[in-house]
């Protein structure tokens, strides 16, 4: 499904701020995989996500989605393969537009936009049903401006939009990190449900070790631009937070696993 082959990325090359972030990273996902990624701050997780989605291009290495070599495919063109949810709840939706307008735009991901109405009468029932499934009362607020919604509601909406049209790959970058614990829990339930509903191949970055263990069938730990741990199946299920923490310390050679990960 997704194949990242020997990808390197250095920011600000040739300057005093030269920062090699990814150093020959490879990763292969099979269809239906739900992979969680953990790693310290600055490990290069978001950079990897950005290279997969085309926000950034690698200095070296290739990225494949299915049979397509998308290494240098522009972001807007590879969007047809991808659903994305970002850490910042503001980033996934257009705040000045209505809930239903946002959903409608998401439903056009992957097809050529034309002079058809953005809002199509026959889609309303479907959108309403999707919103009702969130159990956040959004089904009665189809025409509300998205900027009036809470962070959690916006993130749940973004999730629906990202999962629409069954993307080949769903990318989640710490999408619950900006939410309070209760809302985060709710958004994770929704995540679990939409992923399971269409068996979406999913890559989820999280800073929360508990979350990384609880969700998905495979867990990857990144450190300094490399995959340092890759566990799946039964091995992953038996993993505990303590073990993971210990592995993090040995893998990174860093006794000070960061506070954020310890606490959560």
């Amino acid at each position: 499904m997704l194949e990242v082959v020997d990808v390197s990325k250095t920011f600000n090359p040739g300057t005093v701020n030269e920062n090699p972030v990814l150093k020959g990273l490879s990763l292969k996902l099979t269809p239906g995989d739900f992979v969680t990624i953990i790693g310290g701050n600055g490990a290069g997780k978001s950079t990897l996500m950005n290279i997969i989605s085309g926000v950034l291009f690698p200095d070296h290495g290739r990225v494949y989605l299915g049979t397509h070599d998308v290494t240098y495919m522009p972001e807007y063109r590879r969007a047809r393969f991808l659903g994305r949810v970002f850490q910042d709840p503001m980033q996934g939706t257009a705040g000045d537009m209505e809930v239903v307008e946002n959903l409608a735009m998401a439903s056009q991901r992957g097809s050529l936009r034309g002079l058809r109405w953005n809002l199509k009468a026959h889609q309303f029932a479907y959108f309403q049903e999707l919103l009702a499934s969130l159990d956040l009362g959004l089904e009665n607020r189809l025409h509300a401006k998205v900027k009036l919604l809470s962070g959690g509601q916006r993130q749940a909406l973004t999730l629906l939009m990202a999962a629409m049209n069954q993307p080949d790959l769903l990318l989640l970058d710490e999408h619950t990190a900006a939410l309070d614990p209760k809302t985060a829990q709710k958004v994770m339930q929704v995540t679990q449900r939409v992923v399971a509903a269409d068996q979406l191949t999913t890559l989820m970055i999280t800073h929360n070790m508990q979350q990384a263990i609880q969700y998905g069938n495979r867990l990857i730990m990144m450190d300094s631009g490399k995959v340092v741990l890759d566990i799946e199946g039964e091995d992953k299920k038996r993993l505990t937070v303590e073990q993971l923490l210990a592995k993090f310390v040995t893998a990174s050679g860093n006794a000070l696993a960061n506070d954020r990960m310890l606490l959560s």
């Binding site: 972001e75 996934g92 939706t93 000045d96 056009q108 939009m161």
Partner: peptide, 14 residues
């Protein structure tokens, strides 16, 4: 309209 509002989202939606 969405481009003036949130260009990153518009690109993510293709």
């Amino acid at each position: 309209r969405a481009t003036g509002n949130n260009p990153a989202m518009v690109r993510a939606l293709g």
